[in-house]
Structure formats: structure tokens, C-alpha cells
Design a protein around this nucleic acid. Structure first.
Length: 203
DNA sequence: TCTGCGATATTC
DNA sequence: AATATCGCAGAC
């Protein structure tokens, strides 16, 4: 593929900022996973921030455990957890070392490797329009399509296996804000961010 | 189009 | 006992 703008990987400095800034700035960026001979890529269109220092819904609120230890690392690590006995969810760790915060990636617009994602999600290559829109529009769906599981937890996003690259930045008017989805504690915090009008949002 | 429910690992 | 989810079944 010919590139006009070079793919610029997000740096440690990007990730070590406060979680709310990182969450908003991740919108529009491209998540990439390199596999044996395939590249999976998609535009991040919906995220949620979790900050253990003040946020009861965060895994890190009550301190370090075996599961959430990654969240307390310096920003720029990948945190993947298993939930409901069924699904994986993937997160981007943010902030300084010792601060337990991360951004949950909730929805992605598929760009590359769509045939692989289709196979993993539906067991076939040809999808209906509805299936196409449901390919990666939720945290569990992203992990199924990209085949993320706990073996990917702790990967360094400044490395070469899984990483995020720059893209044209969004206008403020393009970003929507709401309460987070599927939680019961700290519900009132408006920490969900999404690209308005995007077809691949989770709801 | 919507609502309710089951699956079931991990943590507290 | 609760959960940062999803897809299916059944009602309408």
C-alpha cells in the first residue's frame, strides 16, 4: 500500500499523560496488530477512561491484584482481561508508573485484515452489511476479531507486535461524550468518548 | 425493534 | 455475589 503520510507510532510520551487526555486523543488513531503474515488494522472510534485513584468502576480502584498489575505500569502497555467467563476486553495503560489507569477500547472501524476478522467472528468471509457493522463494535468483539487474549496482556505498545499509529487529529465538534456503558459504580462520570456519527459505534 | 437470559472465569 | 459482554430466543 502506498503511503502519503508515514506511519508514526505513538510514543511513550503520548501514553504517560492523564487518562482522560489519552482517551480523547486515541479517537481516530489506528490500532495495528502484526500477525505471522497478516496485518490487522482499524480506526479507534469509541473508548472509555478508567482511573483507579477516583473511579470505583476501575479494576485498579482497590489497588494492585494479579489481574490488574499491568494497569499500574507506566503508560503504553496493553492490558487484556477476561470477563463474564466468555469475553476478553483490551485496554491501553496510561499515566505514570504506579498510577492505575487505562483506556478501554470499545469500538473500532475495520480497515485492514477484514477477511480474517470476518472468519474469526462469523466463520465466513462474505458478510452481510449488518454483520459488517457488527464486526468490531464492542470490546469483546474487537478481541475476537483481532484474536486478543491474556497472552497479549503486558505487551509494550511502543514495540512491534501491537501498536497504535498517528492519524489526522479530530475537531472538537467531532467528538461525543457520555457516561460509560455496562457499569454500576461511578456511573455519573462522563468518561466515554466517541466519534460522532461513526457507523461502527457500540450503540 | 425490544427485552430477558445464559454462559461461566476471575475477583472480592 | 458481582462483573468494563454478547448473541440468541421469544414477544410484539
Amino acid at each position: 500500500m502506498k503511503q502519503i503520510i508515514p506511519l508514526k507510532k505513538l510514543t511513550r510520551e503520548f501514553y504517560t499523560r492523564p487518562v482522560l487526555n489519552v482517551a480523547k486523543d486515541l479517537l481516530g488513531k489506528i490500532l495495528i496488530k502484526k500477525e505471522r503474515n497478516k496485518i490487522l488494522a482499524g480506526k479507534i472510534v469509541e473508548v472509555e477512561a478508567y482511573d483507579g485513584s477516583i473511579d470505583e468502576a476501575s479494576h485498579s480502584f482497590k489497588g494492585k491484584t494479579k489481574r490488574n498489575e499491568i494497569m499500574f505500569r507506566i503508560g503504553g502497555y496493553f492490558y487484556v482481561y477476561f470477563t463474564y467467563g466468555v469475553h476478553h476486553c483490551c485496554n491501553v495503560v496510561t499515566g505514570k508508573e504506579g498510577h492505575g489507569a487505562a483506556v478501554l477500547i470499545r469500538a473500532i472501524e475495520p480497515l485492514s485484515g477484514i477477511d480474517i476478522m470476518a472468519l474469526r467472528r462469523y466463520g465466513k468471509r462474505k458478510l452481510t452489511e449488518r454483520e459488517m457493522l457488527n464486526l468490531t463494535n464492542g470490546p469483546g468483539k474487537i478481541c475476537q476479531a483481532f484474536a486478543f487474549d491474556r497472552t497479549h496482556s503486558g505487551l509494550d505498545l511502543t514495540g512491534n507486535k501491537v501498536f497504535i499509529v498517528e492519524a489526522a487529529s479530530l475537531k472538537k465538534s467531532e467528538i461525543g461524550v457520555s457516561e460509560r456503558i455496562g457499569i454500576s459504580k461511578s456511573k455519573e462520570l462522563p468518561w466515554r468518548f466517541f466519534i460522532r456519527e461513526n457507523l461502527f459505534l457500540s450503540r
